[in-house]
Design a binder for these strands. Structure first.
Lengths: 200, 200
DNA sequence: GAGACGCTTCGGCCCGCGCCGCAGCGTCGC
DNA sequence: GCGACGCTGCGGCGCGGGCCGAAGCGTCTC
């Protein structure tokens, strides 16, 4: 009789959820995008909407991502910093796989990029930007999020950022508790647009 | 056409390797045992020898474990600290899964135990014990491992540890480079027996 | 209201892969 | 040398689960 009869280690379920190629693509997309609606995730993963929905349900059930219903969209995001760290740890193992510094490029860069978006924008940078914008009255807190002031709008134009795309829809900016910083940072279209702008 | 056509994130393969229940049991066993022959792993996982062999081959191929042929046995062990960390990170995510402190017991204790064996015994404690035993001439270095001196054997009796089981077979104690400490620590039956003893 | 749109649920198909038993190879014991 | 033993490689079986299309439900637009 086996010493460990039929108990499956806890981490097996989590790893299996991550291990499916399609779900892995989804998680990778969420890691860079910080939060996305189901349809966009489906496209990013290259599967049909129904398939994506099933996968997302599983990821939610395993506690890897969380949902937030907003209008007729459902926004998914990586659940917390622990999940991000686990993905990072797995990536670290995966990269040095066949050793050598050769193929460490493409996939590793995407991880780096993910960390940039995920940790930096969400971390110090995001917190500072948010505080700065609030302090200079370019952004004001409204009921469920933030709104640009007239000064903020002109500022956007000054730095050469076309606000049209960033401001489409309501709730173009809203707070999101960052786990590493334990303070609010910015999320939403405006934050994404700002990041893209800073990158260039 | 999908934005990310068919690229499967690097970490997916690794996660999939870990995600299979049987392989997960194997890894859990390796995490506590530090290094085991194939047959024992097969028994611990509750599968036939051939099945275990295939799984182990896959784990080796993915760089999660390494093999060392010794006589007619093949000893497997977790490849490096990065892999251990990844497993730990996954476990962390897995434990707080359904939240609540309820079922955090059984599986979490096994993780704790694994960490105790893997990190503590293999880390500071292991290094110190080894140095202490060598310094007090209870253990001496031999060709490929360590051997108990007569003084060491009587000491074992003094602390109430029956040496019979611990000393069965040759190579009951041998060095193993620990990654976190970068110094040799002890492995083998003797080390395991000592740990169990300290636990009680 | 009616229609469009986003997402989920349900049935059903089918491929992948985990499992075993048996055979083959190397190693240790006598 | 011969047998026992440990491990791996190879067919073949069977189930789990990933995929899609169609239908159903809720939300936004006009």
């Amino acid at each position: 009789m086996p010493r460990t009869p039929h108990v499956e280690p806890r981490f097996a379920r989590v790893a299996a959820s991550i291990g499916d190629p399609t779900r892995a693509r989804m998680l990778a997309a969420l890691l860079t995008g910080t939060h996305l609606p189901a349809g966009e995730i489906a496209r990013a993963a290259g599967v049909g909407a129904s398939t994506a929905s099933e996968h997302l349900a599983k990821l939610v059930h395993e506690g890897l991502v969380t949902v937030e219903a907003r209008g007729r969209h459902r926004y998914y995001r990586v659940a917390d910093a622990d999940v991000a760290r686990a993905l990072e740890a797995l990536s670290l193992v995966a990269e040095r796989g066949a050793a050598g510094g050769k193929w460490l490029h493409e996939p590793y860069r995407s991880l780096k990029h993910a960390r940039t978006c995920y940790r930096h924008l969400a971390g110090e940078l995001g917190v500072r930007v948010l505080e700065s914008l609030l302090g200079r009255k370019r952004l004001v807190a409204i009921e469920r999020g933030y709104a640009l002031t007239p000064a903020g709008r002109s500022w956007l134009g000054e730095i050469g950022l076309n606000g049209a795309a960033a401001l489409r829809g309501e709730r173009y900016a809203y707070p999101c508790l960052d786990w590493s910083e334990r303070r609010d940072h910015m999320a939403g279209r405006l934050a994404t647009a700002l990041l893209d702008h800073f990158m260039a």
